[in-house]
Every structure is written in C-alpha cells, then in structure tokens.
Design a protein around this nucleic acid. Sequence first.
DNA 1: GTGGTCTAGACCACC
DNA 2: GTGGTCTAGACCACG
Lengths: 130, 130, 130, 130
Amino acid sequence: MFFEIQADNGIPIYDQVCRQVKFAIARGVLASGDRLPSVRELSKQLLINPNTIARSFQALQQEGIVEPIRGVGFEVATGAKQECRRQRKEIIKDRLSQVLTEAAQSGLEEQEIERLFRQAWSSSQRRSES
Amino acid sequence: MFFEIQADNGIPIYDQVCRQVKFAIARGVLASGDRLPSVRELSKQLLINPNTIARSFQALQQEGIVEPIRGVGFEVATGAKQECRRQRKEIIKDRLSQVLTEAAQSGLEEQEIERLFRQAWSSSQRRSES
Amino acid sequence: MFFEIQADNGIPIYDQVCRQVKFAIARGVLASGDRLPSVRELSKQLLINPNTIARSFQALQQEGIVEPIRGVGFEVATGAKQECRRQRKEIIKDRLSQVLTEAAQSGLEEQEIERLFRQAWSSSQRRSES
Amino acid sequence: MFFEIQADNGIPIYDQVCRQVKFAIARGVLASGDRLPSVRELSKQLLINPNTIARSFQALQQEGIVEPIRGVGFEVATGAKQECRRQRKEIIKDRLSQVLTEAAQSGLEEQEIERLFRQAWSSSQRRSES
DNA sequence: GTGGTCTAGACCACC
DNA sequence: GTGGTCTAGACCACG
C-alpha cells in the first residue's frame, strides 16, 4: 500500500492521510476487516510525526470508516467501502469545482482551460504510473 | 470590479485577493495606471479584515504588479498585464495539475473524472455569469 | 466562569474540559454567541497544555456546540443550550448508572448504598458551594 | 462465579477485574482457601487477554488478598474477607463521590439527580438479577 | 491577540 | 508490539 503526501499543497497533512486511506478503501486496496498500517509504521514510511497520523486515524474513526482494536491496531469498518466511494467522488468534484471556478474568474478562454486540463491530466497519469 | 473570495478552500485569503487582482489585470478590467480600490473599500466589499487586504497589496507591490502612490493609493504598474497573463496561466495550470494528480491517485476512472470536469465546469460558468 | 479539572479521575482531561463547557452552557453561564475563553487563557488558568484545550474545543466544534471565528476565538453556537442540557442529563445518568451497577455487583445492601449516596451528595454540595 | 466487565468505562480492565474479585470475596462467594478461576479460564469467560488477567492477580497478590500456590493457581488468603469488605465500601464511596461532584458542578437540580439516581439504581438492580 | 498545524518525546493501558 | 493521552514548543494565517 502506498500513500503519497505532498509536502505543502495547502491541504493539511492529516487531511491528506485521511483522503489517501479513503481512496485506498474506495479502490479496494483495503477491504473491510483489513488492518491499517500501524501509526508508528506509517509515520516512519511517510516521514511524518506519529501524532499527525494518529490524528488522521482518529478523524477516520469518528467518521466510522475505521475502528480501533485495543492493543492491535485499526481495522477498516464494515460498509466503509461504499462510504469511501461516495466521498471520493465528492472530494474530487469539490476540488475540480474549486479550481474551475477560479479558472472561470481568471478570464481564461474555455479552449485554453481545456488544453491545460488535457496537459495536466496526461502528466498526472504518467506520474501515477511510474 | 468584483472579486470573489471562497471562504475556506485552503488557499489563504490574502493569496486569493492577490490572484483576483492579477486576474483582473490579465483580463484587462484593470489597465496600467488604473487605481486599485482602496483597502478600506475592498475590505468592506469582501467582508475581510483591512489588514489582510493591505497585506495582499504589499505582496503585489513587491512583485511589481502595482505601485503605491503617496496619499492616493495603489495603481497598476506598467507592463503588469503581460506578467499577469503569464502568471494566470501558470496558476491555473498548477492548480489543475494538483487536483488531477489527486484524482488519478483516487483511482477514479478517466471517464468519471471527465464527467465530473464537465459538470464542475458548466456549474462554475453559470456561477461566474450571474 | 470556573472550570474545575480533577487531575486523574480516569476521565481524560480534554474530555473533562468538554463536559465543563457543556455544563456551563447548560446552566446558562455561557449563552449562544458568547465567546469562550481563549485556548491560551484557559490553558493558563487550568495549568493545562494549550494543545489539550485546543483538542477539547475542536471536539466541541465537531459536535456543533461551538464555532471558531478566525482570529477571534470560539463562540457558543445557536441552539447549543438545548443540546447541552440534553447531554448533561445523559452524561450524569450514564455515570450514575455505571457506579450503581458496580455497587450492585459489589453486594452492598441497598440501605448502605443509600447511606453512602447521602453522604457523598452532601459533601459534594459543600465542596461546590465553597 | 460471574464477573462483569464494562467495556470502556474509563476504569482499566485489570482494575475492574481486581474489584470484581474483591467484591466476590466481600460477598462470601469466594472464601479463604478457595481457588480462584485460572487465568486461562477467566480470560476465556470474559474475553480478555490472559496477560491482563495475570496482571490483576499479581496486583491482588501484592495486596495480600490472594496467594499463589505453586503449580496450582491462586487461592484466597486468610483474612481477605474483612479487608475486602472494607475496600468495597471505600471503592463505592469514592466512585459515588466522584460522580456526585460532577453532578453538582453540572448544575442539575437535586431533585433531578435524585430522580436519575432512582432510575439508574433500579435498572442496575434489574441487570444484576438477570 | 486569535486558532490551526506540526514536531518531538514522554508515559500509560492493553495485546 | 498497539493505540491514547499529555506536554512543550514551534511556525503560520488571520484580525
């Protein structure tokens, strides 16, 4: 399982971790009952402070996406997949809406935005395939 | 001149104000030599603390986009339009790249992302026309 | 406004702070729109780390009891009083139920428990009056 | 012998086990010289990790309530009953005092607290009879 | 001044 | 080993 955190893109790290977990569940990489990587392990892997990871997991817990097991770790709650798929769509839609609103305000022509979209899409594809 | 600030989209307000000014210049709404609205006026209009607006203007000044006129206010610097058009493209491209990277990581299918793009685009068009 | 935190009674400090705020709202000491003491101020007053207070306030925020105002502080949300009165009853009921369940299991006679109850009640009254 | 553990009421599980043993001795269900259930058996019955049970028994041993019999298990020490009866009263009194202090702080009226007490008491009676 | 985020490191309860 | 809580102290955005 690979999470990727972008150092400073304006989105808090703990929030990015939450999203990455949700995405992993939505994609089926993590299924209900699966164990999440431990707080300490993930913090080592991502070079992030354990407290920050713990905060992410607690947020996920409050959303009912994961459940803590005493002395064991966190596991994916039942029914999490459906919720995560829903949220995934919501998240991406909101983000797209945000940036496109900005693009529209900027006065760039539709054609130009379309071109930038294609460009950005293919480059992000290349990046995620590597 | 109408700026629109998105309450809490992760981008600092002073930064959003900077962008909106640059966009206005890029679109030709503000031309070289034009006066910017006063800090006080803009803060009223956008319901933002005057300090935040002032900070935005200082940032723009440091970039050479606007120039302070003693006792009068700020006006658009000569040659600002070209610079703003360049930055506009850069800003939108970066933002698109960021969100599409996230979309690719999320595992959403290209088709679905395309659909969300169309949806978000038309809704943001509607919003900016109103 | 006076909050009282008991060093180690098994209930986490951040949870005690949440309860005290809810109780204050339930009692009408804090009304909708009132400002909460600032994180730093309260942390000084209670000799508790600011992060711990912040955690409490964020939890209250998620429950919709308080709302953060940028650069200003937290204020009591509208409709918080009703919710807090409800929760207050719930909290005390649960706590009583917990201890009485334990008392019942202990095999103490009802008479004796009643006696201990009276005793504890009057002493806690004395304490809270002082 | 039936112990009941409350999942997460803030009291550590090992502590709850200690109390339940003490209560059983106080009530005479376990008399001096009686064998305690084995760690393994009790852990199965209560669905608790054996280590946690073992820790409880060690604590009881240190208090002189039980004594280890090599190759056999633990048995109730002589004179344990008196000590347990004393502690039982102390424990319940402290717990009542704690919750009533909180109740007093909450601003609930005496009448209401009395009502909640009756309610909680009868429900806990019902539970322990079943 | 305010809250928001993050790091570092500690101790506890539990498996 | 696991998560849960807490402290200490830092920097940022905002008013």
